[in-house]
Design a protein around this nucleic acid. Structure first.
Length: 224
DNA sequence: TCATTAAATTGTT
DNA sequence: AACAATTTAATGA
């Protein structure tokens, strides 16, 4: 179990803060618990917090009119989301759902804006985060059309280990094959087959209720 | 600590 | 989608 202190210690943006800034953040950030399958935030609701995953895994997704679910990204330990809508003052554009039992940290808009106004390292972090996320979505557009299911699973997993966006992730990822299916947009059966292929290629090791990444670059470039 | 049972997850069709 | 096999977690002796 990871704590808020661990999250702040591992977050790049927190390392650049002054003691005054960090203590205000620790005082005003609230922790909430979400059971697996529950909604963390609804599409269309006002965005008044910046949210970080302290412990767990959430997915960012939308529902199409016919009820089909499409996942844009998974956010593991150490990942933060919602800064785009927070900066623009718009309502949330995606649903956020906990894939596992998750502890989520919420930073009030006032605190977030205060950091934007007073901390150059925090702004630099936001620039990097937005840039990385842009690159991730551009890459997704590409592989979504070009790659077979093995490649899609491989890149979805690699995205979860993006060291810039999600510095808290280790090599071990606790995620069921069903959850991977949601993230990669393929059926659980295809995930099962894809994982075996990736395991034979020496890129990862399949375990009960999770997997261990052995070759992150190999995953990232699989099928290219 | 060990055995039994239920629940979750995986592997296969 | 359905089913069987496997692993984990919980319970109680």
């Amino acid at each position: 179990m990871t704590t808020l202190a661990d999250l702040l210690r591992e977050s790049l943006w927190a390392q650049g803060l002054t003691d005054v800034q960090r203590s205000r953040v620790e005082k005003e950030v609230q922790l909430r618990y979400f059971a697996a399958g529950t909604s963390v935030a609804h599409k269309g609701s006002p965005v008044d917090h910046w949210a970080g995953v302290v412990d767990g895994l959430v997915k960012i997704n939308v529902l199409s009119v016919d009820g089909r679910s499409t996942t844009f990204a998974g956010v593991p330990n150490g990942g933060w989301f919602g800064e785009g809508s927070l900066l623009k003052g718009e309502t949330r554009k995606y649903d956020v759902i906990a894939l596992r039992d998750s502890h989520i940290a919420f930073m009030p808009r006032a605190t977030f804006m205060w950091l934007v106004d007073t901390s150059i390292p925090f702004n630099r972090f936001l620039l990097t985060q937005l840039n990385e996320r842009l690159g991730q979505f551009v890459g997704m557009l590409e592989y979504d059309r070009l790659l077979d299911p093995e490649g899609r699973v491989a890149r979805s997993l690699a995205a979860l280990f993006n060291p810039v966006l999600y510095p808290g992730s280790g090599v071990r990822l606790q995620i069921s094959q069903e959850e991977i299916g949601y993230l990669a947009g393929v059926s659980r059966q295809r995930v099962n087959q894809a994982l075996k292929i990736l395991e034979q290629a020496g890129l990862l090791r399949v375990e009960y209720g999770g997997l261990t990444v052995l070759n992150l670059d190999g995953l990232r470039n699989f099928g290219a």
